[in-house]
Design a protein around this nucleic acid. Structure first.
Lengths: 188, 188
DNA sequence: TCTGAAGACTTCAAAGCTAAAGTTAGAGCT
DNA sequence: AGCTCTAACTTTAGCTTTGAAGTCTTCAGA
């Protein structure tokens, strides 16, 4: 009964420290480059933690991380904040089937509307509602506060350097085409 | 018919470029710090792409990303590569229920064994099989090759700087305790 | 105009996860 | 011994996602 009090839905996550982990890997796998491993593992852990943090924040608004992703995508499309399910699915990396269900829920919650395109009745138009936009804005404020806090220890120069390096890595992964050898391709 | 030929299970993922995305956000949200946004978005995208890449690689070994996580955790525990379901669940950030099912599958595939602890029959011991260890090793080789390729453009010095900065960020997120205000907490 | 084909979702069945409700073994009292 | 409590899984019900199989336009040809 003394353990960390957490919101349900978020198990505890007890990992060995990064240093311990790298040391253990080196014992088991001689060829490991500890510097590379440090970067890769830190990236992975950072992301996990960040996603949890985002999830908790937006849950206070009554939405899930998944729903927030949809809101962001619609806002990014620009006014009038409309996209078809297929396009949404592509940008979010989901199957169209999953998108259908997600839109169902969100429409039920009043975050978006779903209508047939009258000029081409095969198409469907998903549009952000005012409520959806309001929630997006609130989530955005919380997220940017959190992100600023996260980067607090880095100076402006350091941030520039970090951003530049990450973008170089990103380019390497994004530009790598789906290839025969099974390396370097996209999506989660 | 002309689109990228991909393995099934991995939708296309068509996002706007990072620059476009940041520009769009600035139009919609005045307070945005583009430098922060660049770092955060790049982190997120990098991780998505990397996870997909890992997933494709290990699928060639007939295992899923989820199974590979379990193999890694067992190996990290060190010889004789044993852990209980509860401990595994904590380290992987899963519920015990999910762990039970995952172990079921993996035991069925011969990657691990599941036995009751004779000295304390409430406990269960999950142990890596030789086959499991072999697959872990093969996956590890593919992963490290991929990671080395990913970091190819960074010099040794740059890698050091990057790693150090990421660890500083990680510390900030990991040390932040689950708190009342709903910020900075853990798990995926 | 009718037919066939393609495109854009939607529906359906099955996989994998979470939350909550069991089970069962070991521990501490009385 | 007998009881109750707790710990460590397992089981059950319900979601969310995927892959595959529809359904319903629209368009191009015959």
């Amino acid at each position: 009964m003394s353990d960390t009090p957490e919101k349900p839905g978020t198990p505890d996550l007890q990992e060995p420290s990064l240093d311990e982990q790298i040391a253990a890997y080196q014992r088991e796998f001689r060829d490991l480059d500890p510097q590379v491993e440090q970067i890769v593992s830190a990236l992975g852990r950072l992301n996990r933690r960040m996603n949890v943090a985002y999830g908790r924040q937006v849950s206070d608004l009554g939405i899930s991380n998944a729903e927030w992703e949809v809101l962001k995508t619609l806002v990014l499309a620009g006014a009038p904040y409309r996209l078809g399910p297929g396009e949404l699915a592509k940008r979010l990396g989901l199957t169209p089937a999953a998108m259908t269900h997600r839109i169902d829920r969100m429409a039920g919650e009043g975050l978006v509307t779903r209508d047939r395109d009258e000029s081409n009745r095969v198409r469907v138009i998903v549009e952000l509602t005012d409520e959806g936009r309001t929630k997006w804005l609130a989530a955005m404020r919380m997220a940017t506060d959190f992100e600023e806090e996260l980067l607090q220890d880095l100076s402006g120069d350091e941030r520039g350097v970090l951003g530049e390096m990450l973008i170089r890595l990103l380019r390497r992964v994004e530009h790598a085409q789906p290839d025969a050898g099974g390396r370097l391709t996209d999506l989660d």
